[in-house]
Nucleic acid binder design. Sequence first.
DNA 1: AAAGCCTATATTGTCGACAATAATTGACAA
DNA 2: TTGTCAATTATTGTCGACAATATAGGCTTT
Lengths: 221, 221
Amino acid sequence: MMNSLSEQAITGADKTFFQLRNDIVESNILAGSKLSEVELSTKYSVSRAVVREAINRLESCHLVERKANVGARVVSLTAQGLVQLYQVRESLEGMAARLAAKNMTDHEILDLKDLLNNHFREVEGTETYYQEAGDVDFHYRIILGSKNDHLISLLVNGMYHLIRMYRVQLGMVGPRVSTAFEEHKNIVQAISNRDEELAEILMRRHITYSMKNIENRLKNQ
Amino acid sequence: MMNSLSEQAITGADKTFFQLRNDIVESNILAGSKLSEVELSTKYSVSRAVVREAINRLESCHLVERKANVGARVVSLTAQGLVQLYQVRESLEGMAARLAAKNMTDHEILDLKDLLNNHFREVEGTETYYQEAGDVDFHYRIILGSKNDHLISLLVNGMYHLIRMYRVQLGMVGPRVSTAFEEHKNIVQAISNRDEELAEILMRRHITYSMKNIENRLKNQ
DNA sequence: AAAGCCTATATTGTCGACAATAATTGACAA
DNA sequence: TTGTCAATTATTGTCGACAATATAGGCTTT
C-alpha cells in the first residue's frame, strides 16, 4: 500500500531528518537516549551541521528535547505524556472533522466512503495487517479535508509521528477494529450530512475511546 | 508591567532568534519579504550558521516559510490565513479552558480573579493602554492552567507570536474591551465552578466573537 | 519578436576547524 | 571516607570557506 504521507528528501539534511525520525519512532534509537552530534554524523556520514539541522527539526516535532550547551535527548514516553498528547489530538482532530464537514468536496467524501468500504472488506477477511494503515489513512483524509493549512501542519508534520512513536513502542495493534470501524462510519455519515457539530463531537468521542482503550491496555500489561 | 512571556537568551542563536522574531512581528521586517542569510548575518553581526538556526526556529513558529535551495520568506498575512489561525486557536484554547477548569489550583484561580479585577480597574479609568497586555495575560494564565505541556508549547511557543503579528500589523487595538471583559468574567466563573464543559464553550465563543470582530474591522477599513 | 539555451552571478547547502561551555576525573584536605 | 576544587576531557556553539543549486541576463535560433 502506498503511504499517503510519503515525503521526498531534497537536501542531505532532509534525508538525515527522515532517517533519524524513523529510527526514533521505530525505537532503533531508544526513547530517552542522548543524541551525540559527532556520533550521528559518523553514523549517517554527514557533517555535524546537517545533523544539527535534523535535530532542530526533530525538536519542532517534539520528538527530541534540546538544552543549550548540553545537547539533545529523545523524548521519554510516559503515561502522562500520552494523555496530554491525546487531549491535544482530540481538540485538533475534532476541529478538523468539523471543518471537513464544511469544506470537503462531494467527490472527496465519496472517496472517503470508498476507503471505508475497502477497510471493511479487509477487516472482514483475515487481512487485519493493514488495519492501522487504514485507520491512519482515514484520519489523514479528514485532516486534509479541513483545508486548514495550520491544522494540517500541526497534525501531519507535528504530532503524527509522536503519536506513531507511542503506538509502535507501546505495541498497540488491535483489537477495537470493528468498533472503531463503526465509529468511522458514523463520522463519515455526519460529514456527508454536512453536520459540522456532530462530526466534531463524534470525532472527539472516537479519539477519547481510543485513548481509554490504550490506558486500559497499559494497566493490564 | 512585567511581561509574563519573558524568555532569556543563552546562546547567540537565541538572541538572534528573539531579535528576528521581534523585528518580524513588529513589521520592522515586512511580511512576505525574503530573508537573505548573508544580509541578516551582517545586520546582526553573527555567522550564517546562527542565522540559519534562527530561521529554522522561526519556521517552527510558522513565522517564515523555507524552500530548499531557495531560501526563507516572512509569511504573508491574509484574511484566509487569519481565519484558519483563529480556528486552530479556538480549538486549542477551548481545550485549554476545559483543562484549566479541571487542573488549576484554587490559589491560581484566585490569582486569576485578581488579575481580572485589576484589568477592570484599568478599563474603568482612562488607562486603556494595557488592555491588550491584560487580555494576553488572561489567556496566558488559562493556557498555563491547563497543565498540558503540549498545549502550552503549541500555543505559547508556536502560535502566540503569529497571532500577535496579525494583531500588530492589522492594527487591532480596541474597543470590544468592556464586552470582552464580561466574557472573561464568565469564563473565570465557569473555571471557578469547575465546569469544564462550560469553560470550553465560553472560551470558544469568546475567540469566535473576537474573530468576527476582527473580520468586520477589516471590511470597514 | 519570442522562445529556448547557455553563461555569469548570487544564494543556499555542506564541510572541517576553532572557541566556549559542560562533564569527568583526580588530587588534596578535612 | 568524603567533599571540594582544579585540571583535563568531551561536547556543543560559532565561524569562514567551498560545493551545489537556483536565478538573471544576454545570446542564438526560429
